[in-house]
């Protein structure tokens, strides 16, 4: 493992009733890179994210993040060492405002919350960083809006904003463009190009245009195994990948 390896996955296994969702998978995300994972439906992409965040336990293998074995860390602990995920199916606090959603994530990383008395809704220690993030994601105009009233595209932006508010070292983005219009996707790609400058990112995405324009490296996942890893050009020209997945699209 070299110094610039941020996340090292070694021989990771997840078994569901005999089905291998993650099959002896090894993968590395380098510091500062945007590493995309592509693969057909059921390839085990979301399962991998869940194993990384600790939502589901792994049956075998080893995950090292920032030089530390994270096997015994809870989901919350993993958030505190800098792992953050966004959700494929939007998972927000629907009855909170946009700003409150982001504030809650900032609050999670501002010490314990056993503070019972002081009002929190205009605590600038939370709202200032939260507004910065909303600006970054182009949602500053919508800060006071109820989350449920946002458009789908805006909810997808907020989905990422909430993840950003946890000050991550590595962003795990699970299909951020899911269900987005062409136009919204293009805008999001531009934002992700911006975010790339500041964060290491593991991106799962079906939108091939987005993947090939964003990724520094791409891994192709099929039946829980990485059949190839390389630069976008390597992947485009890889015969095995073409057969297994890309088909006519590439």
């Amino acid at each position: 493992m070299s110094a610039q390896d941020l996340l090292v996955i070694e021989n990771l296994v997840k078994r569901y009733d005999g089905l291998l969702a993650t099959d002896d998978l090894s993968l590395t995300v380098r510091e500062g890179e945007l590493h995309a994972i592509i693969g057909p439906n059921g390839a085990g992409k979301t399962t991998l994210i869940k194993q990384l965040t600790g939502e589901i336990p792994s049956d075998n293998g080893r995950v090292t993040f920032a030089g530390k074995n994270i096997k015994r860390l809870s989901e919350a602990d993993r958030s505190h060492i800098g792992l953050a995920r966004s959700f494929q199916i939007t998972s927000l606090f629907q009855d909170f405002t946009v700003l409150e959603n982001v504030c809650l994530a900032v609050q999670a990383h501002s010490g314990h919350s056993f503070r019972f008395w002081k009002k929190i809704n205009n605590d600038t220690a939370l709202t200032d960083p939260a507004r910065d993030i909303l600006r970054q994601m182009g949602l500053e105009e919508r800060a006071e809006t109820a989350t449920a009233a946002l458009s789908h595209g805006e909810q997808r932006q907020l989905e990422i904003a909430v993840a950003l508010a946890t000050k991550p070292k590595l962003l795990l983005l699970d299909e951020p463009m899911a269900g987005m219009s062409r136009e919204d996707s293009e805008k999001l790609v531009e934002r992700l190009i911006e975010l790339k400058q500041h964060y290491s990112i593991l991106l799962i995405e079906h939108d091939m245009d987005a993947v090939f324009s964003l990724a520094d490296r791409i891994s192709v996942l099929v039946y829980g195994q990485a059949i190839a890893t390389g630069t976008p050009d390597d992947i485009r020209n890889n015969e095995e990948v073409r057969q297994a997945y890309l088909g006519e699209e590439a």
Binding site: E75, A76, H80, R85, F87, S91, L104, A105, K119
Partner: peptide
């Protein structure tokens, strides 16, 4: 006071979306 505090925020957030609460730490 309790509902408007940092503590209350966590309690309300956990009702709203427990999975996301864990994910954000």
């Amino acid at each position: 006071r309790l509902v408007g505090s940092a503590f209350g925020n966590v309690i309300r957030g956990s009702k709203s979306n427990e999975a996301r609460m864990r994910a954000i730490g």
